[in-house]
Design a protein around this nucleic acid. Structure first.
Lengths: 360, 360
DNA sequence: CTGAAAGCGCTAACAT
DNA sequence: ATGTTAGCGCTTTCAG
C-alpha cells in the first residue's frame, strides 16, 4: 500500500522528475529495449506486453524524450523554413499550406524569418546548424552560389519555394506566363499603350514577369518601348513597395504619350499607382486600366484585377516534395511550377460587375 | 604529406561524416572536456588551447551537434509558439516581433499553427511534448482549465499573448479601454445613436471591447440599448468575418431608428459593414460613421478609423518576458497590457484630411 | 587550467 | 518476441 501510494504521488509529480524507459521497464518487468520498441513501433511486440507497457507508461505519465531520440536516431523530426518577413501575406499563405501538411506528419516546423536580404544568410546558417532540422524550406530567396554551397555542405534535403536552381527541388509559380497573361488580357481588352511597373532588377520573379510582358507585346505585334517600362529605384524590398509604385506611376504620367493601361508586377505597387492616378484626377479603369500580381488581401477589397498565386497549394506541394525526398534521398531533383490565375475584377475595365468600393 | 592530404579531404567532405569533439580533441592534443569547454564557454580555457581548438575545428568544419547538446544540457534552445492561423495579420506581426527578439538570442522558434479552435489542443499537445521546447508562447487562445493543466503538467515556462490567466505571465492589449476609446471618440464627435457590432460571446476580447463600449455610453449618461448591439451569429472565427459584419450592419439598418455611428469590434467586420452601407446607398461617414478595431492592412487603405494594437511590440515583450523567466524561473507571474492607439482616419467623420480612396 | 569518467534517454544491432 | 549491450555527441562533476 505504501508502495502503491508512492507511485501515485510519482505519477502526479512526474512532470518534474522525468520518467524514462528505465522506470517503466522496471515497473513493467521488461527490458528497456521492449519499452523502446513499444513506443517507436520499430519492431513487433507481443500484444500483452505492449498493453502492460502502455498501462505503466500511462500511470507514470511517461513521454519519450525528444532530444534523446534525436540523438540516437540522428533525426530531429524538424523542418526548418527560412522565409523573408517582407512579403508577409505570401509567406503566411505558404506557411498555412506547410502547416496543414506537416500537421498530418510527425514533423514539426522551425521558422527562421529574416527582416532583410542580408539577414537571410544569418538565418540560413542557423537553420542548417548541425542536427537542427532534417529538411529545409527556402522561400523567396534567390539561390546565390554561396547559399547553394551552404546547403550542399549542410547536406540536408532542401526544397526551394518561389525560386529555382537546378541542384535543388523547387516549387514556384510561372512568373513569365503570369506576366504574359496579365499583359495579354490588357491587350485583348483593347488598350493601346500598356506600360510596366517593375521592381528593381535584383528581383528574379520581377525579371520573369517582365519577360512575359514583353512576350505578350511582341506576340501582339507591338514593340517594347523602354519608356513604358519603369523600374523601382529604391532597394527596399526589391522595389515591391507602395511608394515605388506611386513614383513609377507619376513618371509614366509625365510621359508625352502616357499609357492607357499598366501592368504592375506586384499588387503593392499597383496600390501605389492607384494613389498616383487618383491624385492626378484620373479614373481607374476609365482613364488608365490596371492589372497587378500576387492577389494580396487588399486587392479583393479594392477590386484590383490581378494574378493570384496558389500560395497555399505551393506550401503543401513543397512539403510533399520535401517529405518525399526525406524518405527517399536518391530521387531525382524535380521542379514544380504552378500557373497564376487571372482574377478579373474592376481595375482592368473588362467589366464592372461590382460597384467599386468607396467611402464617403 | 599523405596524412595532410587526408585531412584536407576530410575537411571537404566532413559535412557527411559528422566530426565530433573526439576528432578535434585528438587532433588538437587535448581532452574532449576541453573542446566542450571551448565551445560552450562553460569554463575558462587557456587562450593558447582555445585558439588551437578553434583552429582545428575550423579545418575539420566542426559544428556542435544540437541534439547531443540538448540531451546533455536538458534544454533545447527552442521556443514553441502555438498560434491560431485565423487572424493572420495579427499573428504575423506578433511573430515578427518574436523573431526579431529571438534572432538576438540563442533560441530558435518552433511554430504550431492551428486552423481551428479544436486543432489548438492538438497543436498544444505537440508543443509541450517532453523536451521539445524550453518555453511556450500561447497566442490568442483562451486558457481553459484543461489547457492550464496541460501547461502546468508540461512545466515549461509559458507566456500568454492576447489572453489572460492568473497563473501565467501574459501580454495583451487593453481591450476594454480600447472599446471605451472607440466609443468615446464617436460620442465626442457628436453622434447620437452609437451601435456596436460584436463578435460572438465566445470571444473574450470581444466581450471586453463591449465592456468598454458600455462604459463610455454610461459615462456619457446614455443608456445601453440592447437593440443597438448586434452579435455575430456564425461560429466561424468567433464571428470575426466580413460576412458577419455585413449581416450585422443590415440588421442595424432595419431598426426603426438606425444608428448614426457604429463601433465594430474588429476591422474585418467593419469592412463588411461598409459594404452593407454602400449597398444601402448610405455614405460613410456622412450617414453613418464607423470605427473598427485591430488596424489590419486594408484599414489604412480604405481610411477606416480604428484602434491599432502594438502587435509587433507585444511579440517582443512576450519574448522578453519568456526569456526572463527562463533564466529565473522563480520570478513572480506578471501581466503586461498595452493600450490600443486610436488611428483617426476618414470613416469616423472627425475630419477628412485625405481624399477617400476610390476606384472609377 | 585540464583530464578522466560517468551520465543524459533512447535506439539498434546482436543474441537468445 | 525479448533481452543485452554498445553507442549517439556533448556536458559535467571530480581529481589533479
Amino acid at each position: 500500500m505504501q508502495y502503491y501510494c508512492a507511485w501515485g504521488v510519482k505519477a502526479l509529480t512526474s512532470s518534474h522528475v522525468a520518467v524514462t524507459i528505465y522506470d517503466i521497464a522496471k515497473r513493467a518487468g521488461v527490458s528497456i529495449a521492449t519499452v523502446s520498441r513499444v513506443f517507436s513501433g520499430s519492431a513487433p511486440v507481443a500484444e500483452a506486453t505492449r498493453e502492460r507497457v502502455f498501462a505503466v507508461a500511462g500511470e507514470l505519465g511517461y513521454e519519450p524524450n525528444v532530444s534523446a531520440r534525436s540523438l540516437a536516431r540522428k533525426s530531429t523530426q524538424l523542418i526548418a523554413a527560412v522565409v523573408p518577413m517582407l512579403t508577409s501575406y505570401f509567406f503566411m499563405e505558404v506557411i498555412r499550406g506547410v502547416q496543414d501538411r506537416l500537421a498530418e506528419s510527425d514533423y514539426d516546423l522551425l521558422v527562421f524569418a529574416s527582416r532583410s536580404p542580408e539577414h537571410v544568410d544569418a538565418q540560413l546558417a542557423r537553420a542548417v546548424q548541425k542536427g537542427r532540422a532534417d529538411g529545409l524550406l527556402l522561400c523567396s530567396t534567390p539561390l546565390t552560389p554561396a547559399r547553394a554551397e551552404v546547403l550542399r555542405a549542410a547536406a540536408a534535403p532542401t526544397v526551394l519555394v518561389d525560386s529555382l536552381h537546378s541542384d535543388f527541388d523547387s516549387v514556384a509559380v510561372n512568373n513569365r506566363e503570369g506576366g504574359y497573361v496579365a499583359t495579354r488580357h490588357l491587350l485583348d481588352t483593347g488598350y493601346e499603350r500598356v506600360a510596366l511597373i517593375a521592381p528593381n532588377a535584383a528581383s528574379v520573379p520581377g525579371l520573369e514577369r517582365r519577360g512575359g510582358y514583353e512576350d505578350a507585346l511582341r506576340e501582339a505585334g507591338r514593340k517594347v518601348e523602354e519608356r513604358l517600362i519603369v523600374t523601382s529605384e529604391g532597394e527596399e524590398q526589391h522595389g515591391y513597395t507602395r511608394e515605388a509604385g506611386y513614383a513609377a506611376m507619376q513618371r509614366l504620367l509625365r510621359l508625352p504619350e502616357p499609357p492607357d493601361a499598366v501592368f504592375a508586377a506586384s499588387d503593392v505597387q499597383a496600390l501605389g499607382a492607384i494613389k498616383a492616378l487618383r491624385e492626378a484626377g484620373l479614373r481607374v479603369p476609365d482613364d488608365v486600366a490596371l492589372v497587378g500580381f500576387d492577389d494580396i488581401r487588399t486587392s479583393a477589397y479594392v477590386g484590383l484585377t490581378t494574378l493570384s498565386q496558389p500560395m497555399y497549394e505551393m506550401g503543401k506541394a513543397a512539403i510533399d516534395k520535401l517529405l518525399g525526398r526525406l524518405d527517399d534521398p536518391g530521387r531525382p531533383v524535380s521542379h514544380t511550377t504552378f500557373s497564376a490565375r487571372l482574377s478579373v475584377r474592376e481595375t482592368c475595365g473588362a467589366h464592372a460587375l461590382h460597384p467599386p468600393p468607396q467611402i464617403a
